[in-house]
Design a protein around this nucleic acid. Structure first.
Lengths: 344, 344
DNA sequence: CTGTTAGCGCATTCAT
DNA sequence: ATGAATGCGCTAACAG
């Protein structure tokens, strides 16, 4: 009844064999007779034996575990990325420990230590908004634990990243607005320490340049792109002496709250103003038809990042250690002419 | 340089003390002189020592780890719940291992074993759509590992659950439509093995009864409530010989895809048809103003569930072991008169 | 094919 | 206040 704490020794004693035989049998070693193997497995099942992975991993000095650090698990982009990571990890026999930094550097540092203490064999990380340098990842390097950045990265030598092509996405977004006829295009930008926001901003500027539209510093609204920021940005836009006719927002949260705030002030979207914002699969499924979005392929990024990391762990990376994998984001314009939606 | 594999023995050797002293010092035991303690801590830091939690946990027979099983991490309700779980766990010094069942019973069974092998001290679970009985949780019970269901639960004796009041939510949703003037209200229901769908359906029927509207079996569309199901449901509604004027969908995914499909077929929402669907914080933030939603407080449910579980682990549950905590969901009607949105 | 022995890294009892 | 000895549960090297 009480199947509390059954060990291989318990099984061994009952069956009059040695615990090492039990261990071998349970690990399906070829060095045990089919007959005893079956006896052992049957008894183990009967007693409800469960291997203690702590002990096993300690002994083997191998955990088959990856660490993941994301800013916030409840952001859909990250939970999709985790789903992608898990799929790859699961198929390749790895477990995953997930940690949140909650956008705080200090917590990010702590999570690295937690992962280290848990002897993960590799780490996937998307840095917090507060993260400016990679000191706290040096411990991983020293211990030769490979790590791969995804989406939000730092330029660390000999470290790979899996990224969205943010420059291109920013360029596409802005050009899309220009082609629609917009002349005064505002940009909601994020912390410039983060490559992704820098690159999106660069894409914005490049598109203006290409189309001979003068860059206007007044139209750049820098913030942390939270819900409240979008509202405030919208208010500022409304307050400007001239008319803004387009917005390219570097994320969806601010884009959506700005959109709602504009509507509350009787702006018509997109007649008065057109918006492009980064988004993700869930939100873009329900978003306003008027809001063009750039799809962030979280699942694929997670998948690719995990594949890359595991290949580095296994050492079958043909000298490619400082690789940047660039994944294209898709500009998705939603309108009622889009018929063929939602198939599988 | 190579801070590979530093153990307490390494530190002990260098400092000419015993490893047990190092262990004590590193655990801030009062049984070591401040002086040696400082020397040890300094040296540990210098060498980049990191405790091996595998060994530590094995020795202590204590992992301070909770397991979480959810159907799919990328569904916002679940990732919010996980965020709530993590907050509580983090504050109380617990780690969390997250597993996905991907709605498959077999994977759910496997995850239980994985968690068992990892010697978690408690488990939080939201069951898959395929789960009909609790055999595979018996191993937890036998090992005296407490587990708590959240959101999707089974009636297991002596097991607590943290739930949304689905009956009430279903009732509110349906009554809302009736008060709006709807007479022919369709219901998109989910698998009836799951309590949540059963209860939402019961709430629907109760509201009809209260308002003397005859129940019509033809208006019940049972499915797994995926995107494609919503589209198919919408098509069926369009094909009916009489006019449906309201829909109560038991989840958001099907509600949204149905809504889009109806629009594509020139139905006006909500003039032709009104919809209430369960939803979550992210989606309700961007959802059509015309679509009334029922907010699912994922974060709070996760938080409460984790608190309950940890209190059971600690044994300071005053004999309350089979508790049902019911959390109210909020009906949120979105319309343009809603001014004061998005404030922190 | 199976048993014996050893030790992964740590925390803890008991001794001094 | 510190050291010595032990074992958590498991796997692996070496015997036989």
């Amino acid at each position: 009844m009480s199947s509390d704490k059954i060990t291989i020794h318990d099984i061994a004693r009952i069956l009059n064999v040695d615990s090492s035989t039990v261990s071998r049998a349970l690990n399906n070693s070829p060095r045990v007779t089919e007959k005893t193997k079956n006896r052992i497995i049957a008894k183990a099942q009967e007693l409800g034996y469960q291997r203690n992975d702590l002990a096993s991993n300690l002994r083997k000095n191998k955990t088959n575990t990856l660490g993941v650090i994301v800013p916030r698990i409840s952001r859909h982009f990250f939970s999709s990325a985790i789903a992608g990571i898990e799929e790859t990890a699961y198929n390749l026999g790895y477990n995953v420990i997930i940690c949140q930094s909650l956008e705080q550097l200090e917590r990010e540092q702590n999570t690295v230590n937690t992962l280290l203490a848990n002897r993960v064999e590799g780490v996937l990380v998307s840095i917090s908004m507060e993260t400016k340098n990679y000191e706290h990842f040096e411990g991983l390097r020293k211990r030769k634990i490979p790590f791969v950045f995804f989406d939000r990265h730092l330029n660390v030598p000999e470290t790979s990243s899996v990224l969205i092509d943010d420059f291109q996405a920013g360029f596409d977004a802005t050009e899309h607005l220009i082609i629609k006829g917009c002349k005064k295009i505002a940009h909601f930008s994020g912390p410039m320490d983060l490559e992704i926001y820098k690159n999106r901003f660069a894409g914005y500027k490049a598109a203006l340049l290409k189309h001979h539209i003068k860059f206007n510093d007044e139209l750049i609204f820098n913030s942390r792109l939270m819900e409240q920021d979008g509202i405030e940005n919208a208010d500022k836009i409304i307050g400007l002496p001239y008319k803004v006719d387009g917005i390219f927002s570097a994320n969806d949260v601010a884009a959506i709250s700005a959109l709602q705030q504009l509507k509350r002030n009787d702006f018509k979207i997109p007649e008065d103003i057109a918006i492009v914002g980064f988004s993700n699969e869930a939100i873009s499924a329900v978003i306003e038809p008027s809001l063009t979005t750039i799809n962030q392929p979280g699942f694929n990024i997670g998948k690719r990042a995990a594949e890359l990391l595991i290949s580095q762990i296994s050492g079958n990376n043909g000298s490619v250690i400082d690789e940047k994998i660039i994944i294209q984001a898709n500009l998705v314009e939603r309108d009622s002419s889009q018929k063929n939606q939602g198939n599988k």
